[in-house]
Amino acid sequence: MSEEWKRPPSYLTEKKFSLRLTLGLLISIYFLVVLLSWLFVGEWVPVVVILTVFGFLFGTCMLILILIWLFW
C-alpha cells in the first residue's frame, strides 16, 4: 500500500447531529423540570399540569428529532 491513499471526502468526517446526546439532554431537562416544579409548588396537581404541558412539548420535539434522524 502506498503512503498516499485516497482519503474519504470531508463531508463524511464532518461533525454530525447526535440523536443520543440530544435525547439525553431533553430527558434530563424533563425530569429536572418535574422535580423542580414539585419542589417549588409542593403539590401534585400543578406538577401534573406542568408535566402534561411540558410532556406535549417534549413529545413534539421527540417526534421532530426522530423524523430528522430517519429521513435526514
Partner: peptide, 11 residues
Amino acid sequence: LHLHPESFELP
C-alpha cells in the same frame, strides 16, 4: 477505486 473521483479507501 479510481473509477470515480469521490470513491475512497480505508487501508
